[in-house]
Design a protein around this nucleic acid. Structure first.
Lengths: 145, 145
DNA sequence: ACAACTAATAGGAATGATTACTATTCGCGG
DNA sequence: CCGCGAATAGTAATCATTCCTATTAGTTGT
């Protein structure tokens, strides 16, 4: 199922195109909004179904994270992410992926390791300014929906 | 709010004790089941509220991940996790945390970096056996709830 | 052009995790 | 014992996501 062929319907094509246009790692809902500008009658279910189908086939990437809302990325090359604790923004990160980690684990674990994700957490440029007194009261985030 | 004092009510004490007993990184719901054996009248809302309150104060750790269900860990020292793609099981991992990563990023990013998580993905010992033909049809997971 | 078939879709209902709300209870100082 | 603020139980509401079903689009053979 993971490598099965997939027909590129209009809906799927537009979803993929829109996802490739942005660097914001949008949620399914945000993708829906983008796509709806071009296909006003598309249904949210279709967006979910196709994001899922495409991520199963490695065409896009599905990002987990500390929130309850998935985010998607058209860039399927290995790379890491930073997530802002305050506003939830997700950015790509400019550090090499660390294959050593994976090799080390393979030797010490009974799991069949397929890959790994790294997510840094912190405050994005906008949010870090919005609270530059000390570092006491700001971190009330971590839980938006 | 992150460092505020917290009163150790009976409910909170039991939640913490039960969480410390297990190595399974239980979900809120699973914690609820554990705690209910000792406090049958506790409400699920209380469990959620207190898990949240305690993780805000660094007393426990809240794990995100590729699923839509949070998991909790009483071990707040820095360590990484493996998650089974098939059954969702989460284990601790025996590799050193990689502070180099964080230092590298601090130099190249405008974010205020607070920390990072690493999550390996793969198949746990039980699940890897349950499909050892090749590697074609099994990975239909990645989407349990 | 047309019937037969299959895969995909729209739209809405259902589900599951989490949060919000509210009346009640608990713990404590006076 | 009384008053008061914090915490709780129980339940309703919310939000993301998935499921269901009738309809549509695309394909193949005639």
């Amino acid at each position: 199922m993971a490598g099965t062929e997939i027909k590129l319907t209009e809906q799927r094509r537009v979803i993929l195109e829109e996802l490739r246009k942005v660097r914001t790692h949008p949620s399914a809902d945000a993708v829906y909004d983008l796509v709806r500008k071009r296909l006003p009658r598309i249904s949210l279910g279709t967006v979910y179904r196709n994001l899922e189908a495409m991520s199963e086939r490695g065409m896009i990437r599905k990002l987990g994270g500390c929130q309850c809302q998935m985010r998607f990325d058209a860039d399927v090359t290995n790379h890491y992410h930073v997530r802002c604790l305050k506003c939830g923004r997700v950015d790509d990160v400019a550090v090499e992926t660390c294959e050593v980690l994976e090799r080390a684990l393979r030797e010490r674990s009974d799991y069949a390791i397929l890959g790994h994700h790294v997510e840094f957490i912190g405050f994005c440029p906008s949010c870090r300014c919005a609270g530059e007194d000390e570092r006491s009261d700001q971190p009330e985030g971590a839980g938006e929906r």
